[in-house]
Structures are given as structure tokens and as C-alpha cells.
């Protein structure tokens, strides 16, 4: 898909600020603890430089703050969250969450007005 890059990661990392400096729009997609299983929510993300610094955790808002402080510009940022059903050890999505994937995909596609996201891209989301 031209113009769209999918990055899979287990957590956000400081050096991703250099990547965010290169894009117009970033969409963070993640599981959410709490809420109904499979429930999809979309929100705008604003930069926040008040977060406690840790190498084990970096929020989308703090990463955006890095980007602005270092490079002086910000992409438009969205957060798409999907309510998790189970956070126990496992190798696949729970049936409740898996059933909601088309809804998640639709939510992401709506944020990409100039592109169409094919189903082959789903595997790229962590």
C-alpha cells in the first residue's frame, strides 16, 4: 500500500520519534484493558511531556512530545483501541476480539482517507 507503513512493536520506543517526524498521520493501534471485549474506540492524541521517563513504557502522547521537541513538528495522531478479553498467555486472539477485527479495520480505514487498507495488512498490527 503506497504511502502507508505498518510497524509492529511490543512497545513504543524513543527512536520512533525520528519516524514520526517523517509522516503526516500516525495511527496507534493497541489493546485496551478495561471496557468490553472487542469494543473499538478512536481518539485524537495530543503530545504530553509530563510523563515519567521509563525505558519499559512510552505512551503515544510522550512519543509525540519527543517528536515535537526534537523536530519541531507533529503528525496528526490517532489512537485506536480494542478492548481485550484475556491477557493470559496465548498464541491467538480471543474469539470475542477476533470477531471484531472487521470493525477495527474499518475504524483505521476511515482515518486514511486517501488509502484503502487491504486485509493483508491486519497481521501487521500488534
Amino acid at each position: 500500500m503506497a504511502g502507508v507503513k505498518i510497524v509492529t512493536c511490543h512497545q513504543l520506543l524513543p527512536e520512533m520519534a525520528a519516524d514520526l517526524n517523517q509522516v503526516e498521520t500516525v495511527i496507534f493501534v493497541d489493546a485496551a484493558a478495561g471496557g468490553a471485549a472487542g469494543e473499538t474506540a478512536v481518539s485524537l492524541v495530543k503530545e504530553d511531556n509530563t510523563e515519567l521517563v521509563s525505558t519499559h513504557h512510552l505512551s503515544p502522547a510522550a512519543l509525540l512530545a519527543y517528536t515535537e521537541l526534537l523536530y519541531g513538528q507533529l503528525p496528526t495522531a490517532y489512537l485506536v483501541t480494542v478492548g481485550g478479553a484475556s491477557f493470559d498467555l496465548g498464541e491467538s486472539l480471543s474469539p470475542e476480539v477476533a470477531a471484531q477485527l472487521p470493525t477495527v479495520l474499518q475504524a483505521v480505514k476511515k482515518l486514511l482517507p486517501d488509502h484503502s487498507l487491504t486485509s493483508s495488512g491486519i497481521g501487521g498490527f500488534a
Binding site: L13, P14, E15, A17, N49, V53, L69, L70
Partner: peptide
Amino acid sequence: RNIFGVMQKYPDLAEDGIALRKFGQ
């Protein structure tokens, strides 16, 4: 006294850090 403070005071130093981390990764 955190990385945000470094970015504000010495952005070039902070950018070098980000770039070297990215280099290795």
C-alpha cells in the same frame, strides 16, 4: 531533570541520542 529537559536545553544532543539508538536498533 529528564529527557524532556535535555530536548529543550540541548536538542542536538538529544537528537544524537535518538539517532544512535535508532542506528543500533
